[in-house]
Design a protein around this nucleic acid. Structure first.
Lengths: 267, 267
DNA sequence: CATGATAAG
DNA sequence: CTTACCATG
């Protein structure tokens, strides 16, 4: 069995002060994909420097304090790659992938966007390029008899059941028709399976992000934008998939919650 | 009797969260000169908006979040003036003065400077212009039978007994020979009296500022750079002058401490 | 080592 | 509302 977790830590240095280190010590995950690390490896606190029992690959952004993804794995990766062959995005701390035996695992932090701004254009450019990568990644993996797990903050909710207030958000970045249609293509054309939704087809949420503004967390006014998306072979071997919503504000060390999937699969 | 206090609050909004409001409620001062307010009047917290029993004049900097001086007085000023007639500095939140009956009180925040940088040049330009003002201010006041009290963060220590580590700081901004010589001119040529030193000629300090870096406060490794400087008539009527060094870190709401002088003088 | 502004989320 | 950056002190 292999257990994979995805979590946007919203600044790993801040998260480390608020409970992330303890969460890490207690997790049963074999692979953890992190997003919004917002730290150079050299700026990490000591507790996160040489993580006992973990191999780490860090992919910070050239822009200091922004974005940044990483993958922690109990097994040593056979290969690591930062970026996906994009001139614009490979240094932006938004994608890293590793190979474990028979399995490629990626950590993705898709730009969040903001309607009517250059940041939304950037998100759209990322989506165009990244869909090409996802398609090729699955093709190559399939040809080699490998499976693929793409974990990340996709910054898009797919359907009304994936966010609390979908009616009010139809013109909001993250739930625009074109963004939702793009996610449909990730599933239907590129062939990926959203594991949490596959195992829980009929429930609302589970949400993975609650804004720090207002009382979003208390009202469970969240969005499900962090997903573990995989190729079909391993998706069919998913036995469990869930979100660790914090029990209270005191236990919250990020505005996102960890998403975890268990697979009956030997890496 | 009139009691005058000078204090650099290092951000009045931060200070308000750490005890400044309670200090203000307990002070016996009649006039309080503030420096480094670092807030527009409209950004002040409610507790500092309409101060019960005080008249306030705020002189913020055009540069948001920088500098800013103010004067609180229990009596209503007969006149208030922002700046001292300098094209370069009048909008920089570094000087404000008020008239009370028979007395002019000013709040000064002299630029801090940094050797070898443009900020040191700015400090020197300020010093040149400001000495002219001090001289004229005393002349006009004397002619009109008024006294003058200039309170402020002068950002210069005058003599070895005014800072802990004077030998190591002879090339540091704030204790440069030319800065010390300028302060001597304020005293000897412009005719002002440093009231705390006048009443305590033989002691080291009392320091008014301790860097937040290292263990400066614990080691009392401070500087006496906040002074109440007055014309001779009222200086001779000073009965008491002291610095309120905080008893502990918990009581510290600024890196500077309040400096207070009591005068046997009716405003 | 702390302040407030800023851009980003 | 929170992150981390930055310039200033």
């Amino acid at each position: 069995m292999i257990v994979v977790t995805s979590v946007n830590v919203n600044g790993i240095r801040a998260a480390a002060k608020k409970g992330f280190v303890e969460w890490l010590a207690g997790t049963e995950a074999d692979v953890i994909c992190l997003q919004e690390v917002r730290s150079e490896p050299g700026q990490l606190p000591v507790e996160l420097r040489d993580l006992d029992g973990w191999h780490a690959v860090w992919a910070p952004s050239v822009a200091k304090g922004r974005a940044g993804v990483a993958i922690l794995s109990r097994q040593e990766p056979q290969r690591t790659a930062i970026g996906f062959g994009s001139e614009e995005f490979d240094n932006s701390g938004r994608y890293v992938e590793i190979d474990l035996p028979g399995l490629t695992v990626a950590s993705l932090y898709l730009p969040s966007g903001e309607v009517g701004t250059e940041r939304q254009d950037e998100k759209e450019r990322f989506m165009v390029e990244f869909l090409v990568h996802l398609t090729a990644l699955r093709a190559h993996a399939t040809a080699a008899g490998r499976e693929v797990v793409v974990c990340g903050d996709w910054n898009i909710a797919h359907r009304p059941e994936d966010l609390k207030n979908w009616k009010a958000n139809q013109k909001s970045a993250g739930f625009l028709p074109e963004e939702r249609a793009w996610l449909s293509r990730v599933y239907d054309e590129a062939g990926y399976v959203d594991v949490v939704r596959a195992l829980h087809p009929d429930r609302t949420g589970p949400y993975t992000w609650w804004s720090y503004r207002g009382r979003a967390f208390d009202n469970d006014s969240g969005w499900r934008i962090d997903m573990i998306c995989t190729t079909g072979g391993i998706a069919r071997r998913a036995t469990k998939a869930y979100v660790e919503r914090p029990a209270s504000h005191a236990e919250r060390w990020s505005d996102h919650a960890p998403v975890t999937a268990h697979f009956d699969y030997e890496a």
